[in-house]
């Protein structure tokens, strides 16, 4: 097990280095294509006019924000169960990206809400649970910031991600339940009537772009974390001196 945990980051470092350009370029190209479709090809919406175009950013960001949290919990669980150091590094590398996507989702939600609902912020079920998701991200990063010991930080963060992930569906459900009780039906994003195929295509392309971007950024961050943590090993000294 030891050999494995020691050797693994070194091989992964080089593998990640080869993969990053592919993911980064794919993300860049897909973003350009997706945005082009979103802003120039997709027709103006009958009800929501031009403002709806923000969903090409908003929806993929919201998906990624939620999804990355679950991926973090997954890697955290793997790390806790098998004591693999790389898993904990993945958790740390993913958190900032997830938090940024969640933040973008909230921001674009506000931009979209102003023309739609006439208010920057509405206590809509989705927006509210996304806000709480952002709090969960901030909590994990604050916990890491407060713990000096790397090993303790890794495990504590993984445990928090785990209990957060168990809670996320319950939070989402409870907020939705609360929302329906307190405000009749509000305009909901996915209820945008009969989405045209071209809109869906644009959104999916943007979603893939977000995926590839997240992977590229997370890999780059893992590489940095590996270098930092393994700085006393021979192979890292070799790289740094070259």
């Amino acid at each position: 097990m030891n050999l494995y945990t020691y050797a693994s980051p070194a091989t992964f470092y080089h593998l990640a280095g080869r993969l990053i350009p592919w993911f980064a370029w794919s993300a860049g190209i897909l973003t350009l294509v997706g945005l082009y479709i979103g802003f120039f090809v997709a027709p103006t919406d009958f009800q929501q006019s031009e403002a709806y175009r923000v969903i090409f950013i908003h929806v993929p960001a919201a998906w990624m924000g939620m999804f990355i949290y679950l991926v973090m919990a997954f890697w955290g669980a793997i790390g806790l169960a098998f004591n693999t150091r790389l898993s904990f590094m993945m958790v740390r590398a993913l958190a900032p990206t997830g938090a940024i996507f969640t933040f973008i989702a909230l921001w674009t939600g506000a931009l979209w809400g102003k023309p739609m609902w006439g208010a920057w912020w509405v206590w809509d079920a989705r927006l509210t649970s996304t806000l709480i998701l952002l709090f969960l991200y901030i909590g994990i990063m604050a916990l890491w910031a407060a713990i000096d010991d790397v090993k303790r930080g890794d495990r504590a963060g993984a445990l928090l991600a785990l209990i957060g992930a168990i809670n996320v569906p319950i939070i989402y459900f409870s907020v939705k339940w609360w929302n329906t009780l307190h405000q009749g039906a509000s305009v909901s994003l996915t209820k945008a009537p009969t989405m045209a195929t071209i809109m869906l295509t644009g959104m999916l392309i943007m979603a893939f772009a977000a995926w590839f971007y997240s992977i590229a950024v997370a890999l780059a961050r893992v590489r940095a974390i590996i270098l930092e943590r393994e700085r006393h090993t021979e192979w890292v000294k070799d790289i740094l001196e070259r």
Binding site: F135, I138, A142, A146, I163, G164, N167, I171, S174, V175
Partner: peptide, 21 residues
């Protein structure tokens, strides 16, 4: 941890949401 009390609030309050609702 330093400032453990405030940090605790930050970590746990979001988890309290369902109970509150």
């Amino acid at each position: 941890l330093r400032g453990g009390g405030v940090l605790l609030t930050l970590l746990i309050l979001p988890l309290y949401v369902p109970a509150l609702i």
